[in-house]
């Protein structure tokens, strides 16, 4: 019975929300736009208490039973209690409790500025290191697709930053030639022949482009190429994924509100 009620609620609220988007009936629209969403916020708010209880339970258990790495749990609990103390009990400023959270001079504000902000920024900054190690590993000339990925990745990396503007036209041309050879390298059986051809191309093409007065073309400016990659192929890919995601979302939602997708309730 409990399970049936859950299914009924999912189906009923699902269809009600969908109809609220199309039917012009103010109590229904009001319920969908305001009441239902506020209910969700209230339930989420109460769930926050459950989260806190769970956190305390988990770490107190770890400490009391001296499980592996229980010492870290002390730090977690200390952090939690300190923020509670400065958020709800100790003020440290002239304004009342509550508004003190955003008042310069209060202990909580000091902690936000000097502990929370730098820690958050540090975690985000770690991304730079992980991006470096991931790109170092991933950008390999394994096959045609991986090479294309590498080429666009390199152009985006250089083109996005001011240093990309300093690259002269002939160097861009040399990069193009190298990358072109990276793409077609597998087709050469005789590697010496390929190397000779590459060297010749590196020497002849800049002279040819210069003599034909083509060196001012936007193609040889890496920031322009970067903008083109972002505006055309990246947008096309992004849109394709977006459409796929939208269709997947609709089908998934349809399965849920028609009561077919039950695994969220454990079935």
């Amino acid at each position: 019975m409990k399970r049936q009620l859950a299914y009924f609620l999912v189906i009923f609220i699902g269809f009600l929300t969908l109809s609220g988007h199309f039917i012009n009936y103010s109590p229904l629209n009001n319920f969908i736009d305001n009441d239902a969403t506020q209910w969700f916020d209230i339930i989420s708010g109460f769930a926050a208490f459950l989260g806190v209880v769970n956190l305390l339970q988990l770490h107190l258990n770890k400490i009391s039973q001296k499980k592996d790495n229980w010492r870290y749990s002390i730090i977690t609990l200390l952090g939690f209690l300190i923020m509670i103390f400065f958020g709800f009990i100790y003020n440290g400023s002239s304004v009342a409790l509550g508004p003190h959270l955003k008042k310069e001079g209060s202990a909580f504000y000091w902690m936000f500025q000097n502990i929370y902000l730098p820690l958050g920024a540090t975690m985000f900054a770690l991304l730079a290191f992980f991006v470096a190690s991931a790109s170092y590993r991933a950008f390999k000339i394994r096959n045609f697709e991986a090479t294309l990925l590498l080429i666009s990745g390199v152009f985006l990396m250089i083109g996005r930053v001011p240093i990309g503007q300093l690259i002269p036209w002939w160097m861009s041309l040399e990069i193009y030639i190298c990358l072109l050879f990276a793409l077609i390298a597998n087709r050469f059986k005789d590697k010496k022949k390929m190397l000779t051809l590459l060297t010749l191309s590196l020497l002849i093409f800049p002279i040819l482009i210069f003599s034909l007065n083509l060196h001012d073309l936007a193609l040889f400016k890496i920031p322009n190429l970067q903008e083109w990659i972002m505006d055309v192929p990246a947008t096309a890919g992004s849109r394709a994924i977006m459409i796929g995601i939208a269709l997947g979302t609709i089908a998934q939602s349809y399965r849920i509100i028609t009561g077919r997708e039950k695994s969220i309730l454990g079935d």
Binding site: F49, L50, G51, N54, L265, G266
Partner: peptide, 13 residues
């Protein structure tokens, strides 16, 4: 997110 925790608990159980 705490509300996800409650749902995930039910799902696993």
């Amino acid at each position: 997110v705490p509300i996800v925790m409650e749902t995930a608990k039910e799902t696993c159980k």
